[in-house]
């Protein structure tokens, strides 16, 4: 059996391919693109074969074109995954700068909207109110490990609370 095949039905098309051809995220992404035009069914057709059925919501749709478009979209999704992985730092840096620059620092409205009640007012997830000894030395000794460097401890989201 070929790695990929498709079968035209009444207002639908069934596409089958080897599951090793594309990452699962790419398959989900490509299938999702069709949900406004088709009823989309994902299934397993047999040993290591994925089956995608696209059933047109409207009569008269060109289902063969759907099959072609799906295959193009699969390729696009798979390649994009790889490109994003390779350019991860660049993408993260541009996105962070764009969203940070647009949103700006939190304002008074945001502080007022924060959930500050009797139970949460004294939470100290970053351990700012703790002494250095309390935060690092005692913890290190108690756990029998080396004290972490300051930056690492700060960025850890362990969420220890001051007691």
């Amino acid at each position: 059996m070929s790695d990929m095949s498709f079968h035209l039905g009444e207002g639908s098309v069934r596409i089958e391919f080897d599951e090793g051809l594309y990452p699962k995220d790419a398959i989900y992404g490509a299938a999702y693109v069709f949900i406004d035009r088709c009823w989309v069914h994902l299934d397993r057709a047999g040993d290591r074969r994925i089956q995608v059925t696209l059933k047109a919501k409207k009569p008269g749709a060109d289902t063969q074109a759907f099959a072609g478009e799906f295959q193009n979209e699969l390729l696009g999704q798979a390649w994009r995954l790889r490109i994003v992985e390779e350019n991860k730092k660049l993408v993260e840096s541009i996105t962070a700068r764009a969203l940070g620059g647009a949103a700006g620092p939190p304002g008074l409205d945001e502080l007022l909207a924060m959930d500050i009640g009797e139970e949460t007012a004294f939470e100290d997830p970053l351990g700012i109110a703790m002494s250095w000894e309390e935060k690092y030395k005692k913890k290190g000794k108690a756990e029998g490990t080396k004290a972490e460097p300051e930056g690492a401890a700060d960025s850890a989201s362990g969420g220890e609370k001051a007691s």
Partner: peptide, 9 residues
């Protein structure tokens, strides 16, 4: 994310 050119096929 979708419009960063360096991240698109």
């Amino acid at each position: 994310l979708a419009s960063i050119r360096e991240a698109q096929p």
